[in-house]
Computed example of a mutant assay.
Amino acid sequence: MASVLDIRRADERFHTRTGWLDSRHSFSFSQHWDPRNTHFGLLLVSNDDTVAPGTGFETHPHQDMEIVTWVLEGGLVHQDSEGHNGVIYPGLAQRMSAGTGILHSEKNDSWTLTGEPAHQDPVHFIQMWVIPDEAGIRPGYEQLDINDELARGGWTTLASGMPRHTDRRAIGIRQKHAALHVARMRPAETLEIVTAPFAHLFVARGSASLEGAGPLATGDAARVTRPEGQRLTAGPEGAEILMWEMHAAVSTA
Protein backbone atom coordinates (compact mmCIF):
# COMPACT_ATOMS: atom_id res chain seq x y z
CA MET A 1 0.00 0.00 0.00
CA ALA A 2 1.18 3.51 -0.81
CA SER A 3 2.16 6.05 1.81
CA VAL A 4 -0.50 8.42 3.10
CA LEU A 5 0.61 11.98 3.85
CA ASP A 6 -1.49 14.19 6.12
CA ILE A 7 -0.11 17.73 6.35
CA ARG A 8 -1.11 19.85 9.35
CA ARG A 9 -0.30 23.55 9.08
CA ALA A 10 1.00 25.63 11.96
CA ASP A 11 -2.03 27.93 12.04
CA GLU A 12 -4.44 24.98 12.15
CA ARG A 13 -3.27 23.92 15.60
CA PHE A 14 -5.29 24.48 18.75
CA HIS A 15 -4.09 27.64 20.53
CA THR A 16 -3.88 28.42 24.24
CA ARG A 17 -2.79 31.94 25.15
CA THR A 18 -2.62 33.40 28.65
CA GLY A 19 -0.62 36.23 30.13
CA TRP A 20 2.48 34.04 30.51
CA LEU A 21 1.99 31.12 28.09
CA ASP A 22 1.63 30.87 24.33
CA SER A 23 1.00 27.23 23.44
CA ARG A 24 0.12 25.52 20.16
CA HIS A 25 -1.24 21.97 20.34
CA SER A 26 -0.92 19.47 17.48
CA PHE A 27 -3.49 17.16 19.11
CA SER A 28 -6.50 17.54 21.40
CA PHE A 29 -5.25 18.92 24.70
CA SER A 30 -6.75 20.41 27.86
CA GLN A 31 -9.93 22.32 26.98
CA HIS A 32 -9.34 21.77 23.26
CA TRP A 33 -11.09 18.60 22.14
CA ASP A 34 -11.61 17.11 18.71
CA PRO A 35 -12.38 13.35 18.66
CA ARG A 36 -10.88 13.19 15.16
CA ASN A 37 -7.53 14.52 16.37
CA THR A 38 -6.47 12.71 19.54
CA HIS A 39 -3.21 11.05 18.50
CA PHE A 40 -1.09 9.73 15.66
CA GLY A 41 0.60 6.37 16.10
CA LEU A 42 1.72 6.38 19.74
CA LEU A 43 2.07 10.16 19.96
CA LEU A 44 -0.65 11.78 22.08
CA VAL A 45 0.75 15.25 22.72
CA SER A 46 3.03 17.58 20.80
CA ASN A 47 2.87 21.04 22.36
CA ASP A 48 4.82 24.02 21.07
CA ASP A 49 5.20 26.20 24.19
CA THR A 50 6.62 29.66 24.80
CA VAL A 51 6.81 30.72 28.46
CA ALA A 52 7.39 34.32 29.54
CA PRO A 53 10.23 35.32 31.90
CA GLY A 54 9.61 34.80 35.60
CA THR A 55 6.73 32.38 34.98
CA GLY A 56 6.01 28.76 34.22
CA PHE A 57 4.01 25.66 35.02
CA GLU A 58 3.52 25.26 38.76
CA THR A 59 3.75 21.82 40.37
CA HIS A 60 1.30 19.42 38.75
CA PRO A 61 0.88 15.63 38.44
CA HIS A 62 1.40 13.10 35.64
CA GLN A 63 0.85 9.35 35.52
CA ASP A 64 1.64 6.53 33.04
CA MET A 65 3.17 8.71 30.35
CA GLU A 66 6.58 9.06 28.70
CA ILE A 67 7.26 12.80 28.39
CA VAL A 68 10.09 14.14 26.22
CA THR A 69 11.03 17.82 26.27
CA TRP A 70 13.17 19.56 23.65
CA VAL A 71 14.17 23.19 24.20
CA LEU A 72 14.63 25.42 21.16
CA GLU A 73 15.52 28.72 22.86
CA GLY A 74 16.22 29.75 26.44
CA GLY A 75 16.37 27.61 29.55
CA LEU A 76 13.67 25.57 31.30
CA VAL A 77 13.99 24.75 35.02
CA HIS A 78 12.69 21.28 35.91
CA GLN A 79 11.95 20.09 39.45
CA ASP A 80 10.07 16.94 40.44
CA SER A 81 8.93 14.94 43.44
CA GLU A 82 11.61 12.30 42.82
CA GLY A 83 14.35 14.82 43.60
CA HIS A 84 15.45 15.64 40.06
CA ASN A 85 16.15 19.25 39.14
CA GLY A 86 18.13 21.21 36.61
CA VAL A 87 18.01 23.55 33.62
CA ILE A 88 17.14 22.12 30.20
CA TYR A 89 18.76 24.05 27.33
CA PRO A 90 18.96 23.63 23.53
CA GLY A 91 20.58 20.33 22.64
CA LEU A 92 19.89 18.74 26.04
CA ALA A 93 17.35 15.94 25.61
CA GLN A 94 15.11 15.26 28.61
CA ARG A 95 12.73 12.41 29.44
CA MET A 96 10.43 12.01 32.39
CA SER A 97 8.63 8.70 32.97
CA ALA A 98 5.53 9.50 35.01
CA GLY A 99 4.82 5.85 35.84
CA THR A 100 2.82 5.35 39.03
CA GLY A 101 2.73 9.11 39.56
CA ILE A 102 5.04 12.10 39.71
CA LEU A 103 4.75 15.81 40.50
CA HIS A 104 6.85 18.37 38.65
CA SER A 105 7.16 22.03 37.74
CA GLU A 106 8.63 23.69 34.64
CA LYS A 107 9.63 27.33 34.69
CA ASN A 108 11.56 29.88 32.69
CA ASP A 109 15.08 30.11 34.14
CA SER A 110 15.05 33.93 34.02
CA TRP A 111 15.15 34.27 37.83
CA THR A 112 18.09 33.51 40.08
CA LEU A 113 17.87 31.72 43.43
CA THR A 114 17.97 35.13 45.17
CA GLY A 115 14.88 36.29 43.29
CA GLU A 116 16.78 38.74 41.09
CA PRO A 117 16.02 38.78 37.35
CA ALA A 118 18.81 37.14 35.33
CA HIS A 119 17.35 38.00 31.92
CA GLN A 120 14.06 38.84 30.23
CA ASP A 121 14.00 36.15 27.55
CA PRO A 122 11.17 33.69 26.94
CA VAL A 123 11.82 29.95 26.83
CA HIS A 124 10.55 28.07 23.77
CA PHE A 125 10.26 24.30 23.83
CA ILE A 126 8.44 21.32 22.34
CA GLN A 127 6.94 18.80 24.74
CA MET A 128 5.83 15.40 23.47
CA TRP A 129 3.98 12.56 25.20
CA VAL A 130 3.83 8.91 24.16
CA ILE A 131 2.09 6.13 26.05
CA PRO A 132 4.40 3.61 27.74
CA ASP A 133 4.25 -0.06 26.77
CA GLU A 134 3.76 -0.93 30.44
CA ALA A 135 1.62 0.88 33.01
CA GLY A 136 2.53 1.29 36.65
CA ILE A 137 6.31 1.52 36.31
CA ARG A 138 8.53 3.36 38.77
CA PRO A 139 8.81 7.07 37.88
CA GLY A 140 12.09 8.01 36.24
CA TYR A 141 14.10 10.84 34.73
CA GLU A 142 16.96 11.12 32.25
CA GLN A 143 18.75 13.89 30.39
CA LEU A 144 21.57 13.89 27.85
CA ASP A 145 23.44 16.58 25.91
CA ILE A 146 23.51 15.58 22.22
CA ASN A 147 24.88 18.81 20.72
CA ASP A 148 28.05 17.08 19.48
CA GLU A 149 26.01 14.40 17.68
CA LEU A 150 23.76 17.04 16.11
CA ALA A 151 26.77 18.97 14.84
CA ARG A 152 27.86 15.94 12.77
CA GLY A 153 24.72 16.24 10.65
CA GLY A 154 22.03 13.77 9.61
CA TRP A 155 19.48 12.24 11.94
CA THR A 156 20.39 11.93 15.61
CA THR A 157 18.36 9.56 17.79
CA LEU A 158 17.19 11.70 20.69
CA ALA A 159 15.10 9.16 22.59
CA SER A 160 14.17 5.54 22.00
CA GLY A 161 12.80 2.42 23.60
CA MET A 162 13.44 0.28 20.54
CA PRO A 163 15.87 -2.63 21.01
CA ARG A 164 17.87 -1.72 17.90
CA HIS A 165 18.79 1.64 19.42
CA THR A 166 20.21 0.29 22.69
CA ASP A 167 23.77 0.75 21.45
CA ARG A 168 23.22 4.41 20.56
CA ARG A 169 23.86 7.46 22.73
CA ALA A 170 20.26 8.49 23.39
CA ILE A 171 17.87 8.80 26.29
CA GLY A 172 15.64 5.80 26.90
CA ILE A 173 11.85 5.73 26.91
CA ARG A 174 9.60 2.92 28.12
CA GLN A 175 8.01 2.31 24.75
CA LYS A 176 9.65 -0.39 22.65
CA HIS A 177 7.77 0.63 19.49
CA ALA A 178 8.87 4.28 19.31
CA ALA A 179 11.91 6.48 18.78
CA LEU A 180 12.41 10.20 18.35
CA HIS A 181 15.02 11.54 15.94
CA VAL A 182 16.16 15.13 15.39
CA ALA A 183 18.14 16.84 12.66
CA ARG A 184 19.55 20.34 12.36
CA MET A 185 19.64 20.54 8.59
CA ARG A 186 21.86 22.89 6.65
CA PRO A 187 20.35 24.91 3.78
CA ALA A 188 19.40 22.62 0.87
CA GLU A 189 20.51 19.50 2.78
CA THR A 190 18.47 16.38 1.96
CA LEU A 191 17.64 13.50 4.31
CA GLU A 192 15.37 10.49 3.99
CA ILE A 193 12.55 10.01 6.46
CA VAL A 194 12.23 6.75 8.32
CA THR A 195 10.52 3.65 6.92
CA ALA A 196 8.00 2.57 9.56
CA PRO A 197 4.23 2.15 9.94
CA PHE A 198 3.96 5.71 11.29
CA ALA A 199 6.21 8.77 11.09
CA HIS A 200 5.42 12.18 12.54
CA LEU A 201 7.57 15.06 11.30
CA PHE A 202 7.49 18.47 12.96
CA VAL A 203 9.31 21.54 11.62
CA ALA A 204 10.54 23.16 14.82
CA ARG A 205 12.48 25.88 13.00
CA GLY A 206 13.13 26.94 9.43
CA SER A 207 11.50 25.33 6.44
CA ALA A 208 11.73 22.19 4.34
CA SER A 209 10.16 20.45 1.39
CA LEU A 210 8.84 16.90 1.75
CA GLU A 211 8.69 14.67 -1.30
CA GLY A 212 5.05 14.17 -2.24
CA ALA A 213 3.81 16.96 0.02
CA GLY A 214 5.70 20.10 -0.93
CA PRO A 215 6.82 22.99 1.30
CA LEU A 216 6.63 22.83 5.09
CA ALA A 217 7.11 25.97 7.18
CA THR A 218 7.94 26.46 10.86
CA GLY A 219 5.25 24.81 12.97
CA ASP A 220 3.97 22.59 10.17
CA ALA A 221 3.74 18.83 10.69
CA ALA A 222 3.47 15.80 8.43
CA ARG A 223 1.72 12.64 9.63
CA VAL A 224 2.94 9.90 7.33
CA THR A 225 1.36 6.46 7.36
CA ARG A 226 3.58 3.75 5.85
CA PRO A 227 6.43 6.14 4.90
CA GLU A 228 8.77 4.80 2.26
CA GLY A 229 11.91 6.86 2.74
CA GLN A 230 10.60 10.05 1.17
CA ARG A 231 13.22 12.79 0.83
CA LEU A 232 13.14 15.88 3.01
CA THR A 233 15.07 18.93 1.80
CA ALA A 234 15.82 21.94 3.98
CA GLY A 235 14.92 25.42 2.82
CA PRO A 236 17.33 28.34 2.30
CA GLU A 237 17.58 29.06 6.04
CA GLY A 238 17.99 25.43 7.04
CA ALA A 239 15.63 23.55 9.37
CA GLU A 240 15.38 21.78 12.70
CA ILE A 241 13.16 18.70 12.37
CA LEU A 242 11.74 16.36 15.00
CA MET A 243 10.72 12.95 13.64
CA TRP A 244 8.89 10.24 15.57
CA GLU A 245 9.34 6.70 14.29
CA MET A 246 6.51 4.46 15.48
CA HIS A 247 5.83 0.78 14.88
CA ALA A 248 2.50 0.62 16.71
CA ALA A 249 -0.49 2.83 17.39
CA VAL A 250 -2.73 3.67 20.32
CA SER A 251 -5.47 1.08 20.60
CA THR A 252 -8.93 2.60 20.12
CA ALA A 253 -10.77 -0.59 21.06
Rank of each mutant, 00 (worst) to 15 (best):
A2Q: 12
D6A: 07
F14S: 14
F14K: 09
T18K: 11
T18W: 09
G19N: 15
L21W: 12
H25N: 13
S26I: 09
F27D: 08
W33G: 05
D34Y: 07
R36D: 15
N37F: 02
N37R: 15
N37G: 08
H39M: 11
F40P: 12
L42P: 00
L42Q: 05
L44W: 07
V45D: 09
S46M: 15
S46P: 03
D49H: 06
A52R: 13
F57I: 10
E58P: 11
D64Q: 08
M65R: 05
I67T: 04
L72M: 12
L76F: 14
L76I: 11
D80E: 07
V87K: 04
Y89Q: 11
G91F: 00
G91P: 00
A93L: 01
Q94S: 01
S97I: 00
A98E: 02
G101K: 03
K107T: 13
T112Y: 05
G115F: 02
H124V: 11
I126K: 00
I126M: 14
Q127P: 11
V130W: 07
A135W: 11
R138W: 05
R138A: 14
P139I: 07
Q143V: 09
D145H: 04
I146L: 15
D148F: 04
R152G: 06
G154C: 02
S160H: 09
S160I: 04
G161D: 09
R164D: 15
R168D: 12
R169V: 14
R184F: 01
R186G: 09
E192D: 12
I193F: 08
V194K: 09
A196H: 07
P197T: 04
F202V: 09
V203P: 04
A204P: 04
G206E: 04
G206K: 02
S209M: 03
S209D: 05
A213L: 02
G214W: 02
G219W: 03
A222I: 04
R226Y: 06
P227D: 08
P227G: 07
Q230F: 06
R231D: 00
L232Q: 05
G238K: 10
E240F: 13
E240C: 10
I241W: 09
L242C: 10
M243A: 15
M243P: 07
E245T: 14
A249F: 10
S251M: 11
T252W: 09
